[in-house]
Structure formats: structure tokens, C-alpha cells
Design a protein around this nucleic acid. Structure first.
Length: 495
DNA sequence: CGGTGGAAAGCTAACTTTCCACCGGTGCCTTAGT
């Protein structure tokens, strides 16, 4: 069957979007594939379509539970019943039932953590896997070292399930990150399909203010002025909440804050309200965004600077998916880089902490580590992330082969390298805000690309007609239908 | 680093100034013989 027929029969599309056909053909040729497509261009089709032509199961490693649930829902709506998500939303009888009958499914979504469990992996080993997909593959590089170490184990897992044909998908990866992803997955012979990260309809602007307090005033002005809907990104949950309240008290009723500290249920609710146009503005942390498919976001404001250019691009890329003119504004105050620097300090253990721990191990033996966890953590003041990183390193340390001292030094070097890389990335963001070059050109260079054409309203360095983003008229219409939140939530959470 | 909130100090009673400690994104997973 021709792939166009499959496209129509299963997805009801007549034509492919940019890049889809190349990526699908590469997979069907049996090539491991590393694909980069700009945000919002239909990445899931790149593995769903081949699924209908390949023998065996498609395993999709996905970073977020909500993303998995969403994809499963969408596939079910489309009429595909052989789809399942294996994650902690499942009750244990359901989980056992599903694991015992994996052969009944064609598309299996799973988190990297779940994939790392032996009893789950044993079941997967018995399948004939047609395609192994890593969705949002930049997470391997971005989260894999410290925040979610299971991401670093995907290469070993791939080998355990018999080196299946593999597709890694992402929207933003520098050439370094692409290399990192490929080597981490232990892919030896692969094909790259990299499409431009550029989104010409998003214009970029940096506003330098004198004082931190000016930001509040400026955000209120901008929300008042700009055509919505929009997203405002913060690096602090508290400030996101406070600013949402401030905007509300200024008459913008349809504003909500969104961050990782909220209950799962409120998060889904707020996200869905935003998608359905019942909210104008979201004051969010970096928790908000992955898997948000809203076509008409008109502006993205950065109240704080992101920790790396990749994150910036991901975040502004949530604007203008419909192709219409949209604007990204970053507010900068000298000294703003201190907050991200502080955040990475909380992520990585300090030299003193590492020394202390190895001394402790010298005295008590490393086998005591797991049972004394609580004591050690409170004595040295390790954060969750720091501890996981340390623990993961030490349990994998072969003390028959390596001395404790050697282990200590290697670990210190590892941490130093991580620290240097993270600091460098923050410096790159800062440089970008200070640079007098074209904003777009500078970002494209970072991704080894060149600006190919002149763009109207490119960036503040090239010149912007800012009035274009003004709201022309305020529409205050109530939604014309009633959405049943309760039913929706129970469907998503309990299924 | 920079802001914040609470306590102490200053100096004469009800309020201001100074000081100090603290905080600051991201998410999975926690039960078993076939």
C-alpha cells in the first residue's frame, strides 16, 4: 500500500506537511532516524503512520503522563483501539492485565521510568518491536543527566529489547545535542532529517528595564496592549501566581497561573480552558507547554530569562502555530542571570558536599548508603535532584575495580563538567539579550543554520512595527457551548 | 544576586530603619510468579 493511501485511510489527510514524508520513508527503508521538525508540524504522524505498515509493536517513550494520555485519547477518537499508555495512572489490576496482553496492542506509550523496571522490560523483550520511538528526544540531553536519569538508560534498554528500528523526534536540538542523543541511544548507523528551527512569523524583542519592579508594570501594560491569547513565562512559581493576581485585579479576569506545584487536576483544567479559549493569559513556569497544541497563541512574554537558548525557542515556539503574526518579548534587567545560576546550584551537589559524602562512605562503607539515606540527606542538605544524581552514580560505581578516591575524583570532574556546560548555556542566553546582532540570525547560528530570507518584523534589532500586535477590539463573548469538565477529567484520570 | 518577611533596634509610643535568614523550574515512580 502506498503511504498516501495509509495517510488518507487512517488520518484523512491528502497531503503531508513539511518533512513528514521524508521521515516516514526513511523509517520504512529500515533506517534508524533522528528527526527534527519545528514545533507544531505533526510529529506524531511520523511514527503513527509507519506503525500501520510495519510488523510488530510501536513503542513510544514519552516524557509526560498528560502527553501520553492526550495522544492515546486522540488516537482512540480517530478509531484506533489498539493503543495503550503504561504509566502510574493505571490501577494495578489493569496494569497486570495490560502487561499480560501486550500483543493485543499496536501502539504502546510508556515513560522512561516505567521502561526501566525489570518486570516491565521482561514483557517488552517478548514482543516483536517494529519501531522504538523517543518523543521529545531533547529530554535525553536536557533532563537525562540529573533530573531524570532514566533517560540516560534508554540506549541500554534499546539493546535489551533487541536493537529495534528507532526514531528519535524533537523540535529543538543543536548539533551537539543531536550527537548526544544518537550516541546515548547507541545508534550506529542512522539518518538525519533536520528541518529549520526558524519560525518566521514570530517576531522577537528584548526589552531592557532598569529595575526588577519595572517588570510588573511593563507586564500589565503589555497584556493590556497585546492581542491575546498569550503566555508569560516565569522562573518562580510565586511570581507567576502573584502576577496572575495582579493582572486579574487590573480587570483581566481570564488569567490563571500554571506551575508544577498545582494539583494534577487543576493543571489539566487550566490547560484545557486555555486550549478552548476560556482563558486569555497563562502565567506559567517551564512546566507549561510540552504538548500544548493551541493554534492561535499571539504572544509569549519572558519575565525571567530561560536557562538555555533551546528552552527559549521551545517556549516562544508555542506562539503562532497557525502561521499568523505573533510576538515574543523578553524582559531583561541587569543581574537577571543570577536566578538561573542559583537554580543550577540547587541541581548539582557542591564540592564540599561530595567530599563529605565520600568521607562518610570511607567510614561507614557504601553498602550503608541506601539505609542511611534520610540521615545523609539531612546532614549534607542534598536536594532531591542532587541526591538522585549522587545515588545513581555511586550504585553504579564498581568499587572492586575503582578505588573510592578515584571514584570521588571522577565524580567531581563529572559535576564540574555539568556545571561548566550549564553556566555556558546561561551565558549564551545573556549574550543573546545583549547582542546588537539580529536576534533571529544569532539563534539560527546557535543551531548551525543561516537566515535565508529577509523577514518583515524580524526582531527589534532589524526593526518591528509593534502596533501590529495591538489588540484591535476586545471580544467578550462567552463560549457558545458548555463543556463538561467533570466528565472530561474523570475520563482522562481514571481510564 | 536581589527581593522579602519577620525580628530587633532606635528612641521615646507608635512608627521608621536596619539587619538577617531564606528562597528561587522541570517529573517520573512507590503492591507481583506466568
Amino acid at each position: 500500500m502506498k503511504i498516501e493511501e495509509v495517510l488518507y485511510n487512517h488520518f484523512k489527510f491528502r497531503t503531508f506537511k513539511l518533512g513528514q514524508k521524508e521521515i516516514i520513508s526513511s523509517i520504512l527503508d529500515g533506517q534508524h532516524t533522528m528527526a527534527m521538525l519545528p514545533t507544531g508540524t505533526g510529529k506524531s504522524l511520523c511514527y503513527q503512520l509507519p506503525g500501520y505498515l510495519l510488523k510488530g509493536q510501536v513503542i513510544i517513550v514519552s516524557p509526560l503522563l498528560s502527553l501520553m494520555q492526550d495522544q492515546v485519547e486522540q488516537m482512540k477518537i480517530r478509531g484506533e483501539k489498539r493503543v495503550v499508555a503504561i504509566n502510574s495512572f493505571l490501577s494495578w489490576p489493569d496494569k497486570r492485565q495490560i502487561l499480560n496482553n501486550l500483543n493485543n496492542y499496536k501502539f504502546i506509550y510508556i515513560s522512561p521510568e516505567m521502561l526501566g523496571l525489570d518486570h516491565v522490560l521482561d514483557r517488552l523483550k517478548r514482543l516483536k518491536i517494529g519501531l522504538f520511538v523517543i518523543d521529545e528526544a531533547h529530554c535525553i540531553s536536557q533532563w537525562g543527566f540529573d533530573f531524570r536519569p532514566e533517560y540516560r538508560k534508554l540506549g541500554a534498554i534499546r539493546e535489551k529489547v533487541g536493537n529495534p528500528l528507532t526514531l528519535a523526534l524533537t523540535a529543538t536540538a543543536t548539533s551537539d545535542v543531536v550527537r548526544d542523543i544518537v550516541s546515548s541511544l547507541h545508534l550506529e548507523d542512522w539518518k538525519e532529517h533536520i528541518f529549520s528551527v526558524d519560525r518566521p512569523n514570530i517576531s522577537m524583542k528584548v526589552e531592557t528595564l532598569n529595575e526588577v519592579l519595572d517588570k510588573q508594570r511593563r507586564v500589565v501594560e503589555l497584556v493590556e496592549y497585546l492581542q491575546g491569547p498569550g503566555i508569560i513565562y516565569f522562573s518562580s512559581k510565586k511570581l507567576a501566581e502573584e502576577t496572575a493576581e495582579l493582572l486579574k485585579s487590573n480587570g483581566n479576569r481570564k488569567v490563571m497561573a500554571y506551575h508544577g506545584g498545582l494539583e494534577q487536576e487543576s493543571r489539566i483544567l487550566i490547560q484545557q480552558q486555555f486550549l478552548k479559549g476560556e482563558l486569555d493569559v497563562i502565567c506559567a513556569t517551564s512546566a507549561f507547554g510540552m504538548g500544548i497544541n493551541k493554534e492561535d497563541v499571539r504572544f509569549v512574554i519572558h519575565y525571567h530569562m530561560p536557562l538555555q537558548i533551546e528552552s527559549y525557542l521551545q517556549e516562544i515556539g508555542r506562539a503562532g502555530r497557525d502561521g499568523e503574526a505573533s510576538v515574543a518579548i523578553l524582559l531583561y534587567v541587569p543581574g537577571d542571570e543570577q536566578l538561573p545560576l542559583q537554580l543550577i546550584d540547587n541541581e548539582l551537589p557542591s564540592e564540599a558536599q561530595i567530599d563529605w559524602l565520600f568521607e562518610w562512605m570511607g567510614e561507614h562503607g557504601h553498602s550503608m548508603l541506601a539505609q542511611s539515606e534520610a540521615d545523609i540527606r539531612s546532614l549534607a542538605g542534598f536536594t532531591d535532584t542532587q541526591w538522585r544524581l549522587i545515588f545513581d552514580y555511586i550504585i553504579n560505581l564498581d568499587l572492586d575495580q575503582t578505588s573510592l578516591k578515584e571514584g570521588l575524583n571522577n565524580f567531581k570532574i563529572f559535576i564540574q563538567n555539568r556545571n561548566t556546560i550549564k553556566r555556558k548555556k546561561i551565558a549564551e542566553v545573556k549574550n543573546w539579550t545583549q547582542s546588537t546582532e539580529c536576534r533571529r540570525e544569532k539563534i539560527l547560528k546557535y543551531f548551525d543554520e543561516q537566515k535565508k530570507m529577509e523577514i518583515t518584523n524580524c526582531c527589534d534589532r532589524c526593526g518591528i512595527q509593534f502596533e501590529q500586535y495591538n489588540k484591535r477590539e476586545k471580544l467578550d463573548q462567552e463560549p457558545s457551548f458548555q463543556f463538561h469538565w467533570k466528565d472530561y477529567l474523570s475520563a482522562i484520570l481514571k481510564k
